[in-house]
Each structure stands twice: as structure tokens, then as C-alpha cells.
Design a binder for these strands. Structure first.
Lengths: 206, 206
DNA sequence: TCACAAATGTTTCCAATGGAAATATACTGC
DNA sequence: GCAGTATATTTCCATTGGAAACATTTGTGA
């Protein structure tokens, strides 16, 4: 009963690993994190729900690979305007990229910061996450917000910057905006640290 | 076969609604958000897994009630030192309370900010969340960080404060601390806004 | 007091999920 | 060619949330 002109579906997929990650991304963006089941991903590729086990061990392993891929994209978003001449512009772009990524891929963003879903013991994931964090580190290094005299200024600067932008993105993804709810830009809530200050069109007083 | 001295378990619980919420809290703190199933909560109280439906409609309804209760506790944490004479001390205490709540009840904290798990259409939840947010609003109102000249300064001050403290708490709950990982205090990463500056023992340079 | 409705719980059943185990098929090195 | 490994399927199972039918208690109005 097999049509001879169309070759039968091969038993082996050939690049199932990559296909599963790609399928997961599509499901995430199209139907959300709650729809991202092992069976749904497998069905999207056209394999049985136990096939992924050979490549990822378990659902958590697959989600971990998806999250790692997400961190690569995340970093790309932050480096969007990395070639700009103006360092302030680069800094602004990185912050906005962090938030824009979360807005464009809210479910992927949630997955990436859910240790219950993906394993941060996996080197591929931790390396990707660290690379993404590195962009923030570079920015924080150029920051002179700290007049306290406390030690560990660099680490505290990073944590301040990360907390602010991550909190902003997280709350936005969760749909939690202040009561009256108009959309804000991350650069509009940043204090003036001697960076992000001369905000061109938006801040004529800089 | 029923022992006549011990009355048989009554068919009706009497205060199942409250008991289920309390059971959920205990499971959250003891076994985590992933263990918080409808059946687990019901079993903890000693009723069938369909009994909660009469009071909460569905699992999501029950989780919503638990989250609402969580926001009340959250607010209590933030108001821990609300009677202090020093306004700076009150502000510090509120920030630290926000973070301390997340550290003490990480799974409850995650639940409270998971719109996929609990319904923010429920007035009980939104009211509790708003009350908690009100504490932050009061603090932000006393903040003079904004020299930008942009409009909506109050709302942006709130969002800045909320983003920073929520991001810090969220990252901490997710186990994401900067690479070298020593624990920081939220007040040690806050910029000097003319508040939180004179940090007594920790900041002799204030 | 009694009939009857409403509220509260239970039992039973069902579909969906992730995973384990056994099996089938294809590739690879010798 | 042929054994051994890698890849994928089929089958089975425990767990989960929910729907439906039924049981028990409580409340209400004549």
C-alpha cells in the first residue's frame, strides 16, 4: 500500500536532537509553557513520545537543551546594538534587549529561569547562561553608582543591574504592571548613574 | 467495629476551606511547589480529592486562595518594623522583609507570582496583592531618585523599586546568584537615593 | 414535624502525562 | 558479512485533575 513515488518515512530521523529543540521553541511561542509536554514535542516532530529519551534522558533534559538555546538568543538580543559608537547607547540597547527578549518569548524566558524545569547542573546550560550574564557584567563594570564605600563594589553593581532588569522583565512577563498599567521602558525607570542619563529624545534634561 | 468512646469521623469537615489552605501552606514549605497536587492537599486533610471542588471549583481556585493568603503574610513581613521612629529604618525593613519572605517561603513566593497557577481575576487575590504593593508605593513616594524630568515620576519610582527588590528576591529563590556566589543584602545593592544611604553599621561612609 | 432543596463529600470513571521495559530497525566498525 | 551500538517503537504503568453519579448532612418553609 506504500506509494512507490514517495519514499517511506525513514525509521531514523537523522537530526532528531535539533528537531526536538526547534519543535519545543515553536510550541513555546505558539502555545505556551503549559503546553510544552514531552508528548506534544515528540508529536510535533512526528516521533513517539519515548524517542527523546535516547538524546536527552528525560523531559527535563530536553527542556534544559531548549533553555540553553534560549540563553544564546537572549545574549543575541542584548548585543543587538553592540557595534554602536556611543557606549551609553550600547548600554541602553543591552538593557532593552533583555526586556525585549522576555516580551518576545515570555514562555521561553520563564523556562530559562525555572530550576524546577531545567537542570542547571548541565554545563551546556550554565555556560550559555554565564555568557549571557557576561554582557551584564561588562555593563556593570562601567558603572559608578556606588558611593557607599562598601567592599565588593563590582559584584554588587552587577547584582543591582541584574536585579533591576530581571525584576522588570519578570513582572512584565507575569502581567504585573503597576495599577494604572501604562507601559514603561526599562531605561525610564533606571536611576541616573552617570550612565543611561543622556537619553536623547526621551531625556532633554540629561 | 467502631470504638464507641471515639466518635466516628463526621461526614462533614466543618471548616474544610480553611483546612485546605493551611494544608497547602504546609505542603509548600515542607515539600515544595511541585508536590502541591490536588490529591496531596486533600489527603493531607483527610478528604477525597474531589472534595475541594465544592469550595474552590478547581485546583487553580485553591491555589489562588493559598496565594492570596501568601500576600497577606508577605505584607506582614514588609511591615515588620513599621513602627520604627526612623523612616529610613522602616524603608530598609520593608525591602528586607520582601526578600526575607521569599527566602523563608520560596515555593509560596513562586506560586504568588505565577499567573499560570493562580487566577488574578479573583478579587480576593488581587486585593491582597494590591495591599502588599501598597507598602512599596508608600516607600516609593518618599523617594527622590528622579532627576530626569520625565513625567509620571511617582509611577516610575514605584516600578523601579519593585523591579529591583522583586528581581533580587526572584533570582535568589531561583538559586541564581552571581558566579562567586556570596550572599548579599538587598540594601547593599540599592543605589543611594537619599534614602537607604546612612546604613548604620554597614555603611560608615554615609 | 416533615418534606424537600441545598450544601458538602465520596466513589467511580476517564483522558493526559512521563517514564520503564521489551522489542524492532538502522547504522558502524571490523 | 556480522556483531555491537545507536535510534525508535510499542506496550504497560502510576500519577494527576476533572466529570458524573451517588451518599450524607444541614437548612428551610409549610
Amino acid at each position: 500500500m506504500q506509494d512507490e513515488t514517495t519514499p517511506p518515512k525513514p525509521y531514523h530521523h537523522g537530526s532528531l536532537k535539533e528537531a526536538l529543540v526547534a519543535a519545543g521553541m515553536e510550541i513555546l511561542d505558539a502555545r505556551g509553557l503549559e503546553a510544552l509536554s514531552l508528548r506534544a514535542i515528540a508529536a510535533h516532530v512526528g516521533v513517539s513520545h519515548t524517542a527523546p529519551k535516547n538524546h536527552f534522558g528525560s523531559l527535563k533534559g530536553l527542556l534544559t537543551a531548549i533553555a540553553a538555546n534560549g540563553f544564546h538568543r537572549h545574549r543575541t538580543y542584548m548585543l543587538a546594538d553592540a557595534n554602536s559608537d556611543d557606549p551609553k547607547q550600547r548600554q541602553r540597547a543591552a538593557m532593552q534587549g533583555y526586556v525585549r527578549f522576555a516580551a518576545d518569548h515570555p514562555h521561553l524566558f520563564r523556562l530559562m529561569f525555572s530550576p524546577a524545569l531545567c537542570s542547571f547542573d548541565d554545563p551546556a546550560l550554565t555556560n550559555a547562561a554565564r555568557a549571557s550574564y557576561g554582557v551584564l557584567q561588562d555593563i556593570a563594570a562601567g558603572l559608578d553608582w556606588d558611593k557607599s564605600g562598601l567592599p565588593d563594589g563590582a559584584r554588587r553593581a552587577e547584582m543591582m543591574l541584574w536585579s533591576m532588569v530581571h525584576g522588570f522583565a519578570t513582572l512584565q512577563v507575569a502581567g504585573m504592571t503597576p495599577p494604572d498599567g501604562a507601559m514603561l521602558d526599562i531605561t525610564d525607570i533606571m536611576p541616573n548613574f552617570g550612565f543611561l542619563a543622556q537619553n536623547g529624545t526621551q531625556n532633554p534634561h540629561g
